[in-house]
Nucleic acid binder design. Structure first.
Lengths: 185, 185
DNA sequence: GGAATCATGTAAGTAGTTACATGATTGA
DNA sequence: TCAATCATGTAACTACTTACATGATTCC
């Protein structure tokens, strides 16, 4: 289950929808997949250059004339790139990585500190999960309106509902855990 | 929300229960927190040395006489180490990192491939989540018996129930998503 | 004029894994 | 005797983030 760089596929995926510059891709990530994926500039820009070298994308705005250097570079996905993207999208997922969970780590050693301190961590998480839950609800509502006829809508909703469900489960776990700890000897 | 190295606290936490060598710690991680935490040898051993230098743990088996080099080095947590551990356990959790989710990334771009291929990913995940769910159930059952009077039991159960809940939520999301996609246009 | 935003990129560093090297001990 | 497990550690590498540098454009 070794980690491989997927920045490549994020870029290809984003460019499969429309031509964009690096900055646009960065914004698009923020506005769509940020709940389960992030990319820093330090990964994004070098990968863009790499994908051009590999012929998976190309730059369609090399206005060689007025090259004032800080003009946006608009990228377009190539046929080869689209093929590579689809191949990856279809390929099955090899194992699910274990996510490190600081809350659970602290609770696992919970007997070393006061019950009250442990409860505080859980209450804090419950608060967070509740806020997140509401954000997901709002996003789902908005997306259904703003992208009514977008063929990608069902897929985008799937990802939001995953988050909604996960937060809901977390809230329930918090409630149950608070009760359980308060009762415990 | 910058990433900081928590290997330190895993080691301190494990040693707060009993004296152990590096290998034992590695095994203990496998048998207890592997569901939400992992450490590789490449992190573990250098960190052990570092913690000794920082006086947070000490090596209690420097049998300087018969040093055949591959004899286990038994470590014990110091007062300073225990204090540092407790301080961390009580400190509040700064932000929850976004976990990268390959399944959601593939589904987000799902419109680029066939509905069937997307469904396959979800079915596969459902299978995995179901297996995991059963493992959690078994672990919880066993732990309740094997650690009946252990004061840490409620905390350990909390972490297992988190996993159980999370997998259950995932299974439900899979079922719902499969239905939703099959109906879609 | 100046702040915010648009836009690209790099350098330095951290965290982390993998793969290897080494050798002792246990038990079938 | 040979495989498995116990046991420690390092070197090389990858992924990734942060912080910085730079400058254009927009719009109040």
């Amino acid at each position: 289950m070794k980690k491989i760089n997927k920045t490549k596929y994020v870029i290809l995926g984003m460019l499969s929808a429309q031509e964009m510059c690096g900055y646009d891709i960065s914004k698009a990530i923020q506005n769509s997949i940020a709940n389960f994926w992030s990319e820093s500039n330090g990964q994004l820009y070098p990968t863009l250059s790499k994908l051009v070298r590999e012929d998976l994308i190309l730059c369609v705005s090399e206005n060689a004339t007025n090259s004032t250097s800080k003009t946006p570079k608009i990228y377009r996905i190539t046929k080869k790139g689209l093929h590579e993207l689809k191949k990856w999208l279809e390929s099955s997922i090899e194992g699910v990585p274990t996510f490190r969970n600081e809350l659970l780590l602290k609770l696992f050693f919970g007997n070393q500190i006061s019950k009250k301190a442990c409860l505080q961590h859980i209450v804090q998480r419950k608060q967070w999960a509740t806020e997140q839950y509401q954000k997901y609800e709002a996003k789902i509502k908005n997306l259904k309106i703003s992208n009514k006829n977008n063929p990608s809508l069902p897929y985008w909703l799937l990802t939001l509902e995953y988050g909604l469900n996960a937060r809901k489960a977390e809230i329930n776990w918090c409630i149950k855990s608070i009760e359980l700890l308060e009762q415990a000897n």
